[in-house]
């Protein structure tokens, strides 16, 4: 039932990145990067430290104006839209930032209720109620709801932030290293949660990660960032077979092999 098997033929393109160039001062992060994200897939974006995975994510969601090139989401270029139209598109995104980025002055429930009140026009009671359902959806109990983010553990913050990202039922979910800093059990639980939500909500997921286990467990497609562009993109098997020393080391190094064997074992058990 897992989404790994679900490598359907590419369908509708939701995100289209063409000729993206990002430069900070003299340092070029991306040079002519092309990438497509298809509806319903879980795309894992991997690459060494400093290859601009997070920068790519920020460029796609429109937080960063690229030096050159175009990014189209739902067929529109965010940076050229009117603020109202852009906000409408942004409501179809859910973004989970690396450190959660929960608002520290609001309780967890208020964090999730905020977009529901602001954008969906719900009253406070309905919003709080729905926020509770979202919290339960990501596996957090109700005593978390009235806590402030400072009182939560790393794994709980990631889950609460995911609940906020899911508040408006987004079509695309952007996750920036969701399992970084989690213990292996929490990380595995997060992977399962992501798969469940993906199947149930029909999400498209753009997943930046370093975690090989996550990659093998959840991703339907993988894109490797290196040499300032997308080196290879395709199913895990296609990418792992690519003829590049970095890709080879990444997928066939000791950790890569271990993750692959673990994933293989899981598949057989299912």
């Amino acid at each position: 039932m897992s989404a790994v098997a679900n490598t359907t033929a590419p369908g509708e393109v939701l995100i289209e990145v063409r000729g993206l160039v990002n430069r900070f001062g003299k340092q070029t992060v991306h040079a002519g990067l092309d990438l497509d994200v298809f509806r319903g897939e879980i795309l894992g974006v991997v690459g060494g430290s400093g290859t601009g995975k997070s920068v790519l994510l920020r460029a796609i969601v429109g937080l960063l104006r690229p030096t050159a090139g175009s990014v189209e989401v739902f067929g529109e270029n965010l940076l050229q839209l009117s603020p109202q139209r852009r906000s409408q598109i942004e409501q179809r995104f859910g973004v989970l930032f690396q450190s959660g980025a929960l608002f520290s002055s609001l309780t967890v429930a208020e964090n999730i209720a905020l977009p529901l009140i602001e954008h969906a026009g719900l009253n406070r009671d309905d919003a709080t109620h729905l926020a509770g359902v979202k919290l339960a959806l990501v596996g957090l109990s109700m005593d978390t709801a009235d806590k402030y983010p400072a009182a939560l553990s790393g794994g709980m913050i990631k889950r609460a932030a995911l609940a906020r990202a899911l508040a408006l039922d987004p079509e695309i979910l952007f996750l920036d290293e969701p399992t970084a800093g989690l213990d292996p059990i929490s990380a595995a639980a997060f992977d399962q949660l992501l798969l469940t939500l993906h199947d149930a909500l029909g999400l498209t997921v753009f997943l930046v990660t370093h975690d090989l286990d996550t990659l093998y467990t959840v991703c339907s497609r993988v894109a490797v960032l290196a040499q300032q562009k997308v080196l290879v993109a395709g199913t895990l098997d296609q990418v792992a077979a690519a003829d590049d020393p970095w890709v080879h080391d990444y997928f066939h190094g000791p950790r890569g092999r271990a993750a692959e064997q673990a994933a293989e074992k899981r598949r057989q058990e299912n």
Binding site: G132, V133, K134, L135, A136, L137, S141, M142, T196, L197, A200
Partner: peptide, 9 residues
């Protein structure tokens, strides 16, 4: 999924 979540809630 939502039914289960609601029960938990």
């Amino acid at each position: 999924t939502i039914g289960t979540a609601l029960d938990a809630y």
